Measured scan of single mutants.
Amino acid sequence: KLCLVCSDEASGCHYGVLTCGSCKVFFKRAVEGQHNYLCAGRNDCIIDKIRRKNCPACRYRKCLQAGMNLEARKTK
């Protein structure tokens, strides 16, 4: 099974979405830290295992598009 954000090996369902541990922690920190990420490109950066750290804005956008939600952990 692959992470729906970066296509690395998924470690489980986190915040409602099948993700790897790295994307799970990234999403939690992004939401709780209330980061205002900005993409230096055109908001279409490739997010994969190798390049997932290059653009936090696009990675966060991809987390949201996949359906990640901090509240999902509280309902399970």
Rank of each mutant, 00 (worst) to 15 (best):
S11P: 06
V5R: 02
E9Y: 06
F27C: 03
C39Q: 02
C20E: 02
K49C: 14
C63N: 02
L70W: 10
Y15C: 05
A72I: 12
V5T: 01
F26Q: 01
A40T: 08
D8R: 04
R51Y: 05
T75V: 08
F26H: 03
I46Y: 14
I50W: 11
M68S: 01
K28V: 07
R73N: 05
R52Y: 03
G41F: 09
V17A: 12
E71F: 07
I47G: 04
R73T: 14
C13I: 15
E9N: 15
K74Y: 14
K49E: 06
C39I: 00
I50Q: 14
L2W: 08
T19D: 00
R52P: 04
Q65Y: 07
G41H: 09
V25R: 15
N54Y: 13
C58E: 02
T19Q: 02
A72S: 08
A40N: 10
C3H: 01
L70I: 11
N36K: 14
K28I: 08
K62D: 03
A30Y: 06
R73W: 07
K74I: 14
L70F: 07
C6V: 00
L64S: 07
C6Q: 01
H14V: 03
N43M: 09
S7M: 08
L2V: 11
N54L: 11
F26K: 00
A57W: 02
K62L: 09
C13G: 05
R42S: 12
A30F: 05
C55T: 01
K53A: 13
E32L: 07
S7P: 01
H35V: 10
K76I: 04
E9L: 14
D8Y: 03
G16K: 04
Y15V: 04
C55R: 00
N36W: 05
A30N: 04
A40K: 12
Q65N: 08
L70N: 11
I46A: 14
E71M: 15
S7R: 09
N36M: 13
C3E: 01
P56G: 07
Q34R: 12
C20M: 02
G67E: 04
K53V: 10
G16I: 01
C20I: 00
N69Y: 06
K1E: 09
R42F: 15
D8V: 04
K49L: 09
T19W: 01
N54C: 05
G16L: 02
R73F: 08
E71K: 07
M68E: 03
A72Q: 13
I46D: 12
R52E: 10
N36Q: 10
M68H: 02
C45E: 01
S7Q: 14
R51A: 08
R51C: 04
K24M: 07
